[in-house]
Design a protein around this nucleic acid. Structure first.
Lengths: 259, 259
DNA sequence: TGGTTGAAAACTGTTGACAGTTTACAGCTG
DNA sequence: CAGCTGTAAACTGTCAACAGTTTTCAACCA
């Protein structure tokens, strides 16, 4: 019984569920599925050439990761990150970056320090050339290296999770040239503090850098959708008229019953 | 279609999956399922009176939460937290506690400060009475309040996740009387720094407190299982003789096949 | 005409079943 | 008797189907 070759080439080292999870995550982060939108299980299943089982399992993982929220009998919705939540995420990333910088100032190998310094130099060239895509990639790599070298795997994992969630607020905003230089100056400050072995300065520089990112983010980012929602009364069939606009996860803990 | 309005009707505010997830999590954290053990899907399903589907979905969530690790075609295993990982977890909890204390020093309501102070006083009484169970509960409540009042929901969520993971290393160790007093002195230092509005002192006090916990932990905790593992060669049927001891998740990306 | 109502369609929650893989165990061979 | 080998049981991965709920939509009534 030759099964039709699915869109995902089947590799047997990972389960279908994990592949589906990865694919849905990509769809969400690339903006292919917008925030607040509902995930259609059957639709995703047929689109990916699998059954609904793996899709459901994948969404459970994504729910725990904070990318979607599930409402009983309604489905799972791509999480909407509010402006305030985005700020919270920045605060935490700031904290973790400072932590990583401190760890590296206290204990790091010459190779690691050289790696970081090299990335800063390459970002410098990209900034001078006004190449924001290259800068964007290198910036990601720099922060990844920072967390990886710090030697706390859980910290790195949490940091990556926070970055993903931040992307839910808005699509990636490519950095303006002036911001690139400012940002990379902060990178350099982090690296030099690390190289100097000054843990406290490294921590402050790391925290300040992401706070700077938060400031730059706050100055430009505008919420896409109106965050105002009308309070829902619990009269029967009240939700019938929810027509226009992006569909929203209804009150989860609400228990509607007929009179 | 008027369904019978039975008051005894099962409240459907949560899906079976979330209930199963909660139950399995409880089993793991209470030590009912030990670290390194495999979760039998069918067994759990029949034990909880559900099908395998919800169990599988639940385990995906737990995997993302870091409580279990899934190996293809082998099953999911309760994660074993090594001594080093436990230290990492403590470092992160330390960081987050310091963060919360700093936030509260910068912005907190009198009610919140009173709440924290009250908890410290109650812990003081418990410590004097040598009542370590009460102290344990109050201590949890104190840290919970600290994270809740700090106003960063994600931080609180991460903190709780870290605490759960810490429990995977070893069952809760009730605190010795001397440790209780020392611990609560640190609590008091946090609260007074918060009340004084000294953000930097509060941060240091918060960090120092969990570092103290880590030190007390390191002094007493002994790894239950030998962390030494022999490197597995990939000859055919090599894993046949893995008899004694707790079963272990075999090499995940390994692909064994017969000659 | 505006709002209500009832049935059909669509979707989610859950289950049981089937296929493929891994593990256990008894038998065989040297 | 030790080690290897083949078969059966157990288990995981995936799927299709059924049951219950929500949403849609056209007919109906004031």
């Amino acid at each position: 019984m030759a099964r039709p070759q699915s869109a995902l080439e089947i590799v047997r080292t990972r389960s279908l569920t994990s592949l589906v999870q990865q694919e849905i995550e990509r769809m969400i982060l690339s903006g292919q599925i917008k925030a607040g939108e509902r995930l259609n299980e059957q639709g995703l299943a047929t689109k990916l050439g699998v059954s609904r089982g793996p899709v459901r399992e994948a969404t459970r993982g994504l729910e725990r990761a904070g990318l979607v929220t599930a409402v009983v009998n309604h489905g799972v919705y791509v999480r909407k990150v509010s402006r305030e939540e985005a700020f919270e995420l920045y605060d935490l990333r700031s904290l973790l970056t400072g932590f990583a910088a401190r760890c590296l100032a206290e204990r790091s190998t010459p190779t690691q320090r050289r790696h970081l310094a090299q990335l800063v130099n390459r970002m410098d060239r990209a900034a001078r050339a006004g190449n924001s895509t290259t800068y964007y990639t290198l910036n990601l790599e720099f922060h990844d290296a920072l967390m990886s070298h710090a030697g706390n795997s859980r910290a790195k994992q949490i940091y990556e999770s926070l970055v993903k969630e931040t992307h839910l607020y808005r699509q990636r905003s490519l950095v303006a040239p002036a911001n690139m230089r400012e940002s990379n100056d902060e990178h350099r400050a982090i690296v030099s503090s690390i190289s100097a072995g000054d843990a406290e300065a490294a921590r402050r520089a790391g925290e300040a850098h992401v706070r700077g990112g938060r400031r730059r983010f706050a100055a430009t980012a505008i919420p896409v959708a109106d965050p105002i929602v009308v309070k829902q009364n619990s009269s029967s069939r009240s939700s019938r008229t929810s027509k226009g606009g992006t569909d929203e996860p209804k009150g989860a803990s609400e228990h509607r019953r007929r009179p």
